[in-house]
Design a binder for these strands. Structure first.
Length: 682
DNA sequence: CCGCGGAGTGTTTTT
DNA sequence: CACTCCGCGG
């Protein structure tokens, strides 16, 4: 038995050892939340609770894995604790109970792109786009429908708030949502939201709920502030008569409102579970006091919160975080790159440093400065490559092998072939989905089309590959490889930058080889899309050799670094312009700022530049309103127009001397833009 | 019916 | 600046 007292402070100890009854843990940033979950799992297991009767729901699957593997180091039985996201848990549950909710086990999960495609089909069937009027586009329609589900708010209300100019279509969009829902049910498709919705529907059936709640006697939910109302309902439904539910969260770090998360869940927990225990973790083990002073100042400016104040347990005052102003994006980027380099020379490995952005595209100037200095980096968040065209193309081939009824996948596969467009693809697909098996589809339908048409040659090649992959003993790796071989000519045909994309697919090939079944590969791909970090071939690279991290603030949740640079602290970026007309949205941006600040252990740099080029018009960027308050500003070491670092670009020339270097050079992309601008004017 | 080229548009954050 | 949509020619 492990000595918990020795490893935990009193509040952590209370959170770990309060195992019976409802428990709300309010965990400030850096207060050892992960540690609490790790030891709580361990404590339960060591007290004789069966590992598979513990359920740990987290925000990402990576987080669950991390915590469970830590706990397993003390006691290997912890490995059998069940964990994952609400979505992945739903997936497993629904695979088991598919028929109970009216699906079949072989359902396919639609990602956003697929969902848009499906919505588009339904809308087209309704004659949506035939009319004169300008209808919302498919991505707008999807996000509209999704938002109404996630916030459990009527469609018309979402419409009124987000797209008031489309109000007149409220009725039609509602009809569309119904058609789309019917379509998915008929075709055995579930989109991300459905995973949650159907999970709830399933759990609302008493006979099922009782069974599941009996199995999971201890439920823990991490990042509770980022759950939406449906997920809150699910957490409640999962809780059995013993009411052993523990939720952990920090209302000040709620940053997923756009996805329907509501801090109502965490605020209302005591109401939903009367008599619950509340434990606050306020001692911060991560940051210096100087960093926390900034964080606390930001907290002070928030309203509607559980009150808290972060106190450094490290007892280190540390340097005051610096606020730096630059003229333009390139000076800012150069200074940051230079500073990273200096820190590296001072012995802080790249992997212990990080640069954070509101959105990843803002990191482009920095990326070029880093490349120029040969500083390796990797990016977190932003571009979802599993939704990039080439990845989806290839995966569609695997999808039709796994589920020959998947018409969206077939459509994609067929459209790649020259001379096959929407009409032909549609006609062939209609016939295919009526087939009972892939074999039948190949022999009865495809081979018939593979003669006597302009596209027959291409189609024949497809038939060859799919037949080969159909064989019994063919491994997942081999199927992937065959599909890739087949796809490469299409890839080259379709994309100019095909060799970059081929790299992605090669990496994916290695991953695919690790799977035993296609179904497992597709499951992971649907519910736990691979992140960039997983692509590294070497699983155990030494910290010193790992690259610098560039991350969105969202993707940095739960992580920490010695040095953190937060760039682009400008009104319009943080907070983003879209947020500006809603008080609520601005609040969320402020929490985002809070999350960013609290990632830093020792040193924090905040930077911004004044010269903005939004849409070709120059404008003066104002400092972010979150900084522009006395209590925050006083905690910062403010440096006006510090040019010292920008020397990195100009290679340290004397000032005052009239040289070209004195002027910041255009980057290649700027130059290109300027030239194109000029062409356009002539 | 397909494919291409030109015009227009809007640009976050993620399971 | 990349992606989507639209209209035309083959």
């Amino acid at each position: 038995m492990i000595d918990l007292q020795r490893h935990l402070n009193p509040s952590q100890f209370a959170a770990v050892t309060t195992t019976e009854g409802p428990l709300l843990v309010l965990a400030g940033a850096g207060s050892g939340k992960t540690r609490v979950i790790e030891y709580r799992v361990l404590h339960l297991v060591q007290s004789g609770v069966k590992p598979d009767s513990i359920l740990l729901l987290t925000f990402t699957k990576k987080a669950a894995r991390e915590m469970l593997s830590r706990a397993s180091r003390h006691d290997p039985r912890c490995r059998n604790v069940e964990g994952g996201t609400f979505h992945s848990f739903a997936y497993r549950l629904l695979k088991k109970y598919a028929r109970t909710v009216g699906f079949t086990e072989s359902f396919t999960v639609l990602d956003e792109g697929d969902a848009e495609e499906a919505i588009h089909r339904c809308a087209a069937k309704m004659g949506f786009f035939d009319k004169e009027k300008r209808y919302p586009k498919k991505d707008t329609l999807r996000s509209l429908i999704s938002m109404s589900v996630n916030k459990m708010v009527p469609l018309a209300e979402v419409l009124k708030k987000e797209y008031p100019h489309f109000m007149e279509y409220a009725g039609e969009i509602e009809q569309l949502r119904n058609d789309y829902t019917a379509y998915k049910i008929e075709k055995n498709y579930l989109d991300y939201d459905d995973l949650i919705v159907f999970q709830k529907l399933l759990l609302e059936r008493d006979e099922v709920r009782e069974r599941i709640a009996r199995k999971y006697r201890y439920v823990m939910v991490d990042e509770y502030q980022d759950t939406n109302r449906l997920q809150g309902d699910i957490a409640r439904l999962l809780t059995g008569p013993e009411r052993n539910i523990m939720v952990v969260g920090d209302d000040a770090q709620s940053i997923y409102g756009f996805r329907g998360a509501s801090h109502e869940n965490i605020m209302d927990f005591p109401r939903h579970f009367p008599g619950c225990r509340v434990v606050k973790l306020e001692e911060n083990y991560r940051s210096t006091q100087a960093v926390l002073d900034v964080a606390n100042a930001v907290l002070e400016n928030m309203k509607d919160k559980y009150s808290k104040c972060l106190v450094s347990a490290k007892g280190v005052e540390g340097d005051k975080p610096k606020l730096l102003f630059f003229r333009d994006a390139y000076e800012e980027a150069a200074w940051v790159a230079q500073t990273i380099k200096e820190q590296l020379d001072n012995g802080v490995p790249l992997h212990h440093q990080c640069v954070l952005f509101r959105s990843l595209y803002l990191s482009i100037p920095l990326q070029s400065e880093l490349s120029r200095r040969n500083i390796p980096y990797e990016t977190y968040g932003g571009l979802k490559f599993y939704e990039t065209a080439h990845v989806k193309d290839l995966m569609s081939h695997l999808k039709v092998m796994a589920n020959p009824r998947d018409e969206l996948a077939w459509n994609r596969v067929l459209m790649l072939i020259r001379k096959i467009g929407p009409k032909t693809a549609g006609a062939i697909t209609d016939e295919i989905v009526r087939c009972a098996s892939l074999g039948e589809a190949l022999t009865e339908v495809l081979s018939r089309y593979a003669k006597g048409h302009g596209y027959s040659g291409g189609l024949d090649r497809l038939v060859q590959v799919l037949s080969r992959c159909q064989g019994e003993g063919v491994t997942v790796g081999e199927r992937f490889e065959d599909s890739l071989d087949y796809y490469i000519p299409h890839l080259k045909d379709k994309f100019d930058d095909w060799h970059l994309r081929l790299n992605d697919l090669e990496a994916l090939r290695q991953i695919s080889a690790r799977y035993d079944t296609l179904e497992e590969l597709l499951e992971d791909f649907a519910v736990e899309p691979p992140e960039r970090g997983i692509w590294r071939v070497e699983p155990e690279t030494k910290d010193e050799e790992k690259p610098l991290v560039l991350s969105t603030i969202h993707s940095a949740k739960g992580l920490e670094w010695d040095n953190v640079c937060l760039m682009g602290l400008v009104d319009g970026v943080l907070p983003v312009t879209f947020a500006l007309d809603s008080e609520e949205d601005i609040e969320e941006e402020q929490r985002l700022f809070y999350v960013a600040v609290t990632r830093a252990k020792n040193r924090l740099f905040l930077t911004l530049h004044h010269e903005g080029t939004r849409g070709g018009i120059y404008q003066f960027n104002k400092m972010s309103r979150f900084l522009d308050s006395r209590n925050v500003l006083s905690k910062l070491d403010r440096r006006e127009a510090d040019r010292s670092g920008a020397a990195g670009t100009g290679a340290g020339k004397e000032p005052d001397e009239e040289t070209a270097e004195d002027v910041t050079g255009y980057s290649k992309s700027t130059l290109l833009r300027k030239v194109l601008d000029l062409y356009r004017r002539s």
